[in-house]
């Protein structure tokens, strides 16, 4: 085997070892994440909390602000995703109704109307 090929092989072995160590054995640990990175079920519960609170407060603008930490998507999309997950997950009808009401209110706010 030519010497340059041997060097290349050793280099590739080093890269492979580094990637295995950095991606599998000791990947970057995130300990200070934002709500936007929450798993779908936790996101849904977060949105449900906003919906439960909105049901009493009837403050759609505040609900939109609370939803804004869940990502850059439009608030209505965030609520509809949560509603979809909740429907598939067998949430009780009461929770589905709360989410649907929030989706409607958020739509009105983002379209410029009053809730």
């Amino acid at each position: 085997m030519p010497r340059w090929a041997l060097f290349l092989l050793v280099f590739a072995l080093g890269v492979t070892a580094g990637l295995i160590y950095g991606w599998v054995i000791a990947p970057v640990q995130y300990t200070e994440t934002a709500p936007a990175s929450l798993r779908a079920d936790y996101r849904t519960d977060y949105v449900l909390m906003v919906a439960e609170t909105f049901h009493v407060e009837q403050d759609a603008a505040l609900a939109v602000r609370r939803l804004s930490v869940l990502g850059s998507e439009p608030p209505e999309t965030i609520v509809l995703q949560a509603l979809d997950f909740a429907q598939q997950g067998g949430y009780v009808q009461e929770d589905l109704s709360l989410l649907a009401a929030l989706a409607q209110a958020v739509r009105l706010v983002t379209q410029g109307g009053a809730p």
């Binding site: 060097f7 050793v10 280099f11 590739a12 072995l13 080093g14 890269v15 492979t16 070892a17 580094g18 990637l19 295995i20 160590y21 950095g22 991606w23 990947p27 970057v28 995130y30 994440t33 990175s37 929450l38 798993r39 779908a40 936790y42």
Partner: peptide
């Protein structure tokens, strides 16, 4: 050369393309 490769691998794994954490 092996250590250089290791360094490049770690640079990629930890800095350039770290594990995406989307299910926190």
């Amino acid at each position: 050369i092996f250590l250089s490769g290791l360094g490049v691998g770690l640079l990629v794994a930890w800095v350039i393309a770290p594990v995406e954490y989307v299910d926190a």
